[in-house]
Design a protein around this nucleic acid. Structure first.
Length: 415
RNA sequence: GUGGGUGUAGCUCAGUUGGUUAGAGCGCCAGAUUGUGGCUCUGGAGGCCGUCGGUUCGACUCCGAUCAUCCACCCCA
């Protein structure tokens, strides 16, 4: 019971944490280059924030949230995604009063009560960026270009960028009616879930994986053909900016994102048919959450899925060495000397290890090999008395003489 | 939420039609002439065979339940 992590959670062990460090370092690096600043927000928020922000018709809100009442009687929810909390923080800290647009990014854990499977956990980690205060298509293009650079930095290739437009509150109602009209003719052929979507959210039918629905949806009127002039122009501008940057992309009219707040531009990035990043513009979310009328756009991606994709493509760099130097010692005197030497070297910034359990030299060598130490030095009474020892390169096996009193400076020549 | 697979040593898995002290490989620890890893050889530790209940003279092996885990669908990251 106590030795088992709750369902859908996963420990990140020391053996694999370097992968996370690697990805996180690229996140910070790319965001910094693009001028995005990190924001950190609470793990839990008032439940109403997500009900209003994510949309109370979405599956996420309807059945996947970790909601509970705290001791003060407040309804609290563990964040199921990042955007809503970031919008709240943006408003609460009056960030709209600072230089606009506000360009933010975050890397945080999210919680959804779902049945776990490959790449889907109850606690997962999401990297996302949000930009508030610009309705310009240039903002859209910048966000997508950041995503592209991020994946390129991780050495991804064969990546597909797909964009679509889902219209705005001005043109979507008319489109919805048209869709309902179209799909009603096929009422007896649609799957049951699509049937229930028909009135509330007909756009989702286009997204259905059921082959029959897919076939029908394929010929349905598409929003990019039906949206208003303003939306059309915005979409065209995004496309030409993408062209100007030389970023190739596909237009996928079936992209309909699952969260309710999107308007105009939406996009997904796929790798091997798996969506690994997705996002879009949300011009009314800030206002919806009680703020001024400020447009926003962003995207998010799941770190677990990203790491899975990197693993399957063998894109992680070599695991870093466990230590620069292992100090092997023989006998009590040498052990004391080794303790002192390790302390001195560590103060110099040299990553060194020594025996901590009183093992034989042979066992110490094995240990040094196992942790991936690059060099080993063996200290016995002879070495301590003479003040010199042999430095062994664990990769080549060759040994060179070194003096002990200025070991750190000699070592730095080899590292 | 729906459907399917799997649960035996730290890991990956064997385990014959139910029959006495449950196996392998890898890993781990220790040796192979005294102070040197990776290769080889030898030895050793380590499993209430997921849990509970049932059938049986007897169950790792059959049945049921439960939990966990994996996969697909749904949904999404």
């Amino acid at each position: 019971m106590f030795t088992k992590a709750p369902r859908g959670t996963k420990d990140i062990t020391p053996a694999e944490v370097y992968k996370w460090h690697y990805v996180e370092s690229k996140i910070h690096q790319v965001c910094d280059v693009f001028g995005y600043k990190e924001i950190r927000v609470p793990v839990f928020e008032h439940t109403e924030l997500y009900e209003r922000g994510v949309g109370d018709t979405s599956d996420v809100v309807q059945k996947e949230m970790y909601t509970f009442e705290d001791k003060g009687g407040r309804s609290i929810t563990l964040r199921p995604e990042g955007t809503a909390g970031v919008v709240r923080a943006y408003l609460e800290n009056n960030l709209y009063a600072e230089a606009a647009p506000a360009k933010l990014y975050y890397n945080l854990s999210c919680y959804r009560y779902e049945k776990p499977q490959a790449g889907r956990l109850r606690e997962f980690h999401q990297f996302g960026i949000e930009a508030f205060g610009s309705a310009s298509p240039q903002m859209d293009a910048e966000i997508i270009s950041l995503a592209k650079v991020f994946f390129e930095t991780l050495k991804f290739d064969n990546l597909g960028i797909f964009i679509n437009s889902v219209g705005c509150p001005k043109c979507r109602p008319a489109y919805h009616e048209k869709l309902i009209e179209y799909f009603t003719d096929y009422k007896d052929k649609l799957c049951s879930t699509c049937l229930s979507r028909l009135d509330k959210n007909p756009m989702r039918i286009i997204d259905c994986k059921n082959p029959v629905c897919k076939e029908i949806g394929h010929k349905a009127p598409m929003i990019i053909d039906e949206q208003c002039e303003e939306c059309n122009e915005h979409f065209d501008n995004v496309k030409s900016l993408m062209d100007a940057m030389g970023i190739s992309y596909g237009i996928d009219p079936t992209i309909v994102r699952g969260l309710d707040y999107y308007t105009t531009t939406v996009f997904e990035i796929k790798s091997d048919n798996m969506v690994i990043a997705g996002g879009g513009r949300y011009n009314h979310l800030v206002e919806e959450l009680g703020g001024p009328s400020i447009p926003g756009i962003g995207f998010g991606l799941g770190l677990e899925r990203l790491i899975m994709a990197l693993e399957s493509r063998n894109l992680f760099p070599q695991k870093p060495s466990g230590a620069d130097l292992y100090i092997s010692s023989i006998g009590d005197n040498a052990a004391i000397y080794a303790q002192k030497l390790a302390f001195e070297l560590r103060k110099e910034g040299i990553r060194c290890e020594k025996d901590l359990v009183g093992r034989s030299v042979k066992a110490q060598m094995k240990y040094a090999d196992k942790i991936g130490a690059r060099f080993v030095i063996v200290l016995g009474d002879d070495e301590i008395n003479s003040g010199s020892a042999k430095l062994k390169n664990m990769e080549t096996g060759e040994q060179t003489d070194v003096t002990l009193n200025d070991l750190s400076s000699q070592l730095k020549n080899y590292l």
